[in-house]
Design a binder for these strands. Structure first.
Length: 473
RNA sequence: GGCCCGUUCGUCUAUCGGUUAGGACACCAGGUUUUCAACCUGGGAAGAGGGGUUCGACUCCCCUACGGGCUGCCA
């Protein structure tokens, strides 16, 4: 059972359906596969399950690729289109037919539906559909009618799924029907396509949502029918909303792209998502390199996890603080674009770059960082917000007036600026905080900013004096 | 209805038969402070319920409750 191809290098895959944006749960599934493969020198493949022509769209495919790229989950080779492989799927279905592990079923969809309706009408619960064609003599096959190809599933005994997360899961074979592998229009069903593709792509480890756990039993039958090795299964629990219910729109952000647009750094998302349903002892804050090294199937939990935005923010704040400035600036520009905000001008870019050292440790998200860096991004005249305006009372403005002349010739370093500001505060019988407040208002137009010294150093002497004079009136 | 999975502080989790059940986020109190953030100290906070097994269960088994998934010629 479940021959784990342990001797082969690891190959994992992420196989989303392009019917919408990349869901946060899908993002985590992709992350787990990526970490597992990358941590073992294996390959991480991407396959787009676009066999449902009605619901699949190129826009959704683009959104998914974009989401993965933002998360930094690079895949090996080109993304495989499942639809493009339909001939191979059909070929395998016919091979099963030839082997006798599948059969032609001439029952129409209407007949199957009628069977179910009848069962229901009789008050009976759900019943497995048993095709009358399963053991029919080929001689009785109608020559001109379309047929579906159904799996000849065992009706007795049980199927064991050896799962790295769920353990050994048993299914009574009487519960499993003769699933259709090739539709009457010649197109493959998902159940067949995944197995054929995973096999052909050399996938060794299937890490996916546990909504597929039941499917694994059915899929094993296809592997067995074709005499192929069954991959290592790892069915991970789904992610729930903060209220414990299945994650949906009403919980807010469910798309990976939403998080980018809200200004969460990708490294923080990876870290947070990795900790959702997986743990490595007490490690909470780590890099992707560490995650690759530590990630293992045995560390995956079995209960669904809930999204906790507070924790996400905390982790993201730590990652922003730990980022180097060049990477941070680049990512902030990506955020601006994703959030449909105006791009930085060259001047803003330079100033922000110089300001990063004093704002990155005080922000949990990019919009928060940008707000803290407002002093560097804005330009005269500085418009004070309501809270800041209160600090610019007549007395304070008078004090600012006495300050500017003192700044003309001093060397522009914190060491030399500090005595001057302290002296001014002392001379007016106020604490430093009372002086800093109007300075914040004058320099940034805000009441919450980096240290006044940092702001002065970043914007420079001339701009500092100009802003102070503007405010002093 | 049937089958399958799950249930440790509010949340994410550690524990893999013997612990004062640990950590993190959040929260509360205090400290630091130039606002915000950060930081330091302290605090409250958990094994769903009931049966077993065992010298001893959060850990193993059974039942119940609750939550979730699957049950398509969707993926």
């Amino acid at each position: 059972m479940c021959a784990a191809p342990a001797d082969r290098p690891v190959v994992t895959r992420f196989a989303p359906s392009p019917t919408g944006y990349l869901h946060i749960g899908g993002g985590r599934t992709a992350l787990f596969n990526w970490l597992y493969a990358r941590g073992r020198g294996g390959k991480f493949l991407l396959r787009i399950e676009d066999t449902d022509r009605e619901r699949s769209t190129p826009e959704a495919t683009a959104a998914i690729l974009q989401g993965l790229r933002w998360l930094g989950l690079d895949w090996d080779g080109d993304a495989v289109s499942q639809f493009a492989r339909k001939d191979r799927h059909a070929e395998v279905a016919h091979e099963m037919l030839a082997r006798g592990t599948a059969y032609k079923c001439f029952s129409t969809a209407e007949e199957v539906a009628a069977f179910r309706a009848e069962q229901e009408a009789q008050g009976a619960s759900y019943a497995v559909f048993q095709s009358p064609w399963r053991d029919a003599d080929p001689a009785t096959h109608p020559a001109d009618k379309p047929f579906a190809i159904r799996m000849r599933a065992p009706r007795t005994g049980e199927t064991l799924v050896e799962d790295k997360v769920q353990g050994t899961v048993r299914f009574g074979n009487e519960q499993l029907d003769d699933m259709i592998v090739l539709r009457s229009d010649g197109t493959p069903t998902y159940m067949l396509a995944v197995v054929v593709d995973d096999h052909d792509m050399g996938v060794t480890h299937v890490i996916r949502g546990d909504d597929h756990l039941n499917n694994a039993a059915r899929q094993q039958m296809v592997y067995d029918a074709m005499g192929w090795d069954i991959p290592v299964w790892a069915h991970i629990p789904l992610i729930h909303g903060p209220d414990g219910k299945k994650l949906s729109k009403r919980h807010g952000a469910t798309a990976v792209g939403d998080y980018q647009a809200q200004g969460y750094p990708a490294a923080g998302m990876r870290n947070y998502l990795a900790r959702l349903g997986w743990a490595h002892g007490d490690d909470e804050f780590f890099t992707s390199a560490q995650a690759m090294e530590w990630f293992d199937l045995s560390g995956i939990g079995r209960s669904p996890a809930r999204l906790d935005f507070k924790k996400l923010e905390n982790i993201c704040g730590l990652h922003i603080a730990a980022s180097d400035d060049a990477a941070l600036l680049h990512e902030i520009e990506g955020y601006l674009a994703a959030a449909a905000q105006p791009a930085l001008t060259q001047g803003q870019r330079d100033l922000l770059s110089r300001a990063l050292y004093c704002v990155k440790e005080r922000a949990k998200t990019f919009p928060e960082l940008l707000e803290k860096a407002h002093f560097a991004l804005t330009s005269r005249p500085i418009v004070a917000d309501e809270a800041a305006a209160k600090a610019l009372d007549p007395v304070s403005r008078g004090i600012l007036k006495t300050l500017t002349p003192r700044l003309q010739n001093v060397s522009w370093t914190k060491e030399d600026l500090e005595p001057i500001l302290n002296e001014i505060a002392t001379a007016h019988g106020i604490g430093f905080g009372k002086l800093a407040a109007p300075m914040r208002a004058a320099l940034a137009g805000r009441s919450a900013t980096p240290s006044v010294y940092d702001m002065m150093l970043v914007i420079g002497r001339n701009e500092t004096i100009a802003r102070l004079e503007d405010a002093a009136g």
